[in-house]
Computed example of a mutant assay.
Amino acid sequence: MSHLHYAILKNRSLIAIGGEEATHFLQNLVTCDLDQVQETGAGFGALLTPQGKILFDFLIAKTEDGYLLDTPRETLAEFSKRLTFYRLRAKVVIEALDDTMGVIASWHSTDTTISPAFSSLGVTISDPRLADLGNRHLGVIADMSKAMVLAGASEETPDVYARHRISLAVPESLSDYAYSDIFPHDADMDQLNGVSFSKGCYVGQEVVSRMQHRATARKRMILISSDALLPEAGATITADGKPVGTLGSSTQNGDRHLGIALVRLDKAKAAHDKGVSFICDNIDVKLDLPEWAKFTWPSDPADV
Rank of each mutant, 00 (worst) to 15 (best):
I114D: 10
K146M: 09
G102W: 01
T84V: 14
D176L: 14
D111G: 05
D99A: 12
K199Q: 07
A302R: 09
G19R: 02
P72G: 08
G194L: 03
L174P: 00
D70I: 00
I283P: 00
V103G: 05
P72C: 06
E95G: 07
K81V: 00
D288E: 15
G259R: 11
D303N: 14
Q27D: 15
L223C: 09
A228Q: 15
S225N: 07
H257G: 09
T251N: 05
T112M: 13
I222S: 09
V263A: 06
S109T: 14
D284Y: 03
A293R: 10
P243Y: 05
I60E: 07
I279K: 02
I166E: 01
K53Q: 11
D132T: 11
A233M: 13
I8T: 10
D284Q: 04
E291H: 08
F56G: 03
L9W: 01
L14D: 09
L55Y: 06
G152R: 04
L229N: 08
V103S: 06
L138V: 09
S277R: 13
A142C: 05
I182R: 08
P116E: 05
D255F: 02
K269Q: 14
A261S: 14
R82H: 14
I260M: 13
D240W: 00
E95W: 01
D57R: 13
T238N: 08
T246K: 15
H24S: 15
T157S: 15
I166A: 06
M144V: 11
L83G: 10
D98T: 07
V285L: 08
A169Y: 00
S80Y: 00
S299C: 04
S145F: 01
Q38Y: 04
D70C: 03
G248D: 07
A217N: 12
P128A: 04
D288G: 01
T236E: 14
V37E: 03
L223P: 00
V160M: 14
A178S: 12
G41S: 06
D288L: 09
T31V: 08
